[in-house]
Amino acid sequence: MTVEAACPLTARDYKSDYKPVWCPGCGDFSVLLAITKALAEVGRPPEEVAVVSGIGCSSRVPAYTNCYGFHGVHGRALPLATGLKLTRPDLLVLAAGGDGDGYSIGGNHFMHACRRNVDLTYVVMDNQVYGMTKGQPSPTTSPEWDSALVPGGTGLRPFHPLVIALAAGANFVARSFSGDPNGTAELIVEAIRHPGFSLIEVLSPCVTFRPEEREWAKQVHPAPVEPTDDRGRAARRVLTDDGFNIGVLYRGRRRPYQPPFGQAQVEVAEFEAEFLP
């Protein structure tokens, strides 16, 4: 299944030649690098990896890898990834996208993917803004942030993805910062290796519409606590921390959801008998 160490795979083996649409300085460049580094570390050949996404700046990531990819419609990366993984448990399936795609239009799928706990790794590049449509507030945007679409700010409390993920049943929860691609790659490796549904929330600045997010580099810090397998404790921590704790925040012990697929016990023709009167 994997290529032996004679010629170890490197991040470059997972990178395509296709030039990203991202703005210079975008945090997503580093996340792409982290993903390819992580895949090289895990060592599954590119054709055994599928990167699945929805719509948005960060959702462009599949075509920038040399893996199989699916760039679907807005908000539906997780059901696409779920259908693929359930029927192809042999593949490494990674879903990726942004905060608008995953937490707003795809919010219901996010909850249910956590609850379902299929063995997927979900990398969310959270920049607290809709970048592709040029600067509207997302569910994680702070209430006072002013924009053309919502002048004066939304006045709404931001969505807290990590607490929602914990409450809904995600099996692995981590936070990272795009400015640290090596650290992010390590977290992605661990997420891939952890069974079940893993969420990595990557703080990934939008330098065009949220230039103030460059300051995140100074604000992030390693989580001052050890990862826990206690959901309540993890939830309390992420609810009360400053939002810049980096590292693994929760490692669960739920069994992944993977019903058997592909092992027929009967021939289809055997069902004919039930239609006899």
Partner: peptide
């Protein structure tokens, strides 16, 4: 199940259509 397949109850129709697209992309 008996025929070596699987039916997944999805959270809504947006999910169900995308789950089958994902499954078909994989070859089913």
């Amino acid at each position: 199940q008996k025929a070596g397949g699987l039916l997944m109850q999805a959270e809504d129709e947006l999910a169900s259509i995308n789950m089958i697209i994902g499954g078909s992309f994989g070859g089913a």
